[in-house]
Simulated scan of single mutants.
Amino acid sequence: MTSVDAVLDPAGRAVIPPTVLTGVLDVGRREGSSVIPWFSGTGLEPGLLQAPGVLVSLHQVRTVLRRALPALDRGPLGIEIGERDALLSFGLLGVAMRASGTLGDALALAEELHQTAGSLLDMELEDLGEHTAIRFRERWPDPDLVAFLCEEALTSTLVMIRSMLGEQSWVPSRVALTYPPPVHAAHYRRTFRCPVGFRSATNSLVLPSALLRRRLATAHEPTRRAALEACRTMSAQGEPPSDLVASIEMMMAGHLRRPLSMRDVAERLHVTERTLHRRLSESGVRFRDIANRVRERRATLLLARSSVPISAVAAEVGFSDAREFRRAYLRWTGRTPSRARQDGGAAAGPVRTAG
Rank of each mutant, 00 (worst) to 15 (best):
R30T: 14
E31W: 12
G32S: 03
G32I: 03
S33D: 13
S33G: 12
S34A: 15
S34P: 07
V35A: 03
V35G: 02
I36E: 15
I36Q: 15
I36W: 14
I36P: 10
I36L: 15
P37T: 01
P37S: 01
W38T: 05
W38G: 05
W38E: 06
W38S: 05
F39P: 03
F39V: 04
S40V: 07
T42K: 01
G43T: 10
G43R: 09
E45P: 08
E45Y: 13
P46I: 01
G47D: 13
G47H: 06
L49S: 02
L49I: 02
L49V: 05
Q50M: 15
Q50W: 10
A51R: 11
P52I: 08
G53L: 07
V54N: 02
V54I: 14
L55V: 12
L55D: 01
L55A: 09
V56L: 01
V56K: 01
S57C: 05
H59R: 09
H59Y: 10
Q60F: 10
Q60H: 10
R62Y: 07
R62V: 13
R62D: 12
T63F: 12
V64G: 03
V64N: 03
V64R: 04
L65V: 04
A68D: 06
A68W: 03
A68H: 09
A68L: 08
A68M: 09
A68Q: 07
L69G: 05
L69F: 01
P70T: 07
L72Y: 02
D73G: 09
D73R: 14
D73E: 11
D73T: 11
R74D: 13
R74G: 09
R74F: 08
G75W: 07
G75H: 12
P76W: 02
P76C: 13
P76S: 15
L77V: 12
L77T: 02
L77I: 08
G78L: 06
G78T: 03
I79Y: 00
E80M: 11
I81F: 00
I81E: 02
I81L: 01
G82T: 06
G82M: 01
G82D: 03
G82P: 01
R84E: 11
D85H: 14
L87P: 00
L87G: 00
L87E: 02
L88E: 15
S89H: 08
S89K: 09
S89T: 13
S89G: 13
S89E: 12
F90V: 04
G91Y: 09
L92D: 15
L92N: 13
L93C: 08
V95E: 10
V95W: 01
V95T: 14
V95R: 07
A96P: 12
A96T: 03
M97L: 08
M97V: 06
A99E: 05
T102I: 05
G104F: 08
G104Y: 07
D105R: 04
A106L: 06
A106M: 04
A106H: 04
A106Q: 04
L107A: 04
L107K: 00
L107D: 03
A108P: 11
A108I: 10
A108L: 14
A108N: 14
L109H: 08
L109N: 06
L109S: 03
A110N: 14
E111M: 08
E111R: 10
E112K: 13
L113M: 15
L113P: 11
L113Q: 14
L113E: 15
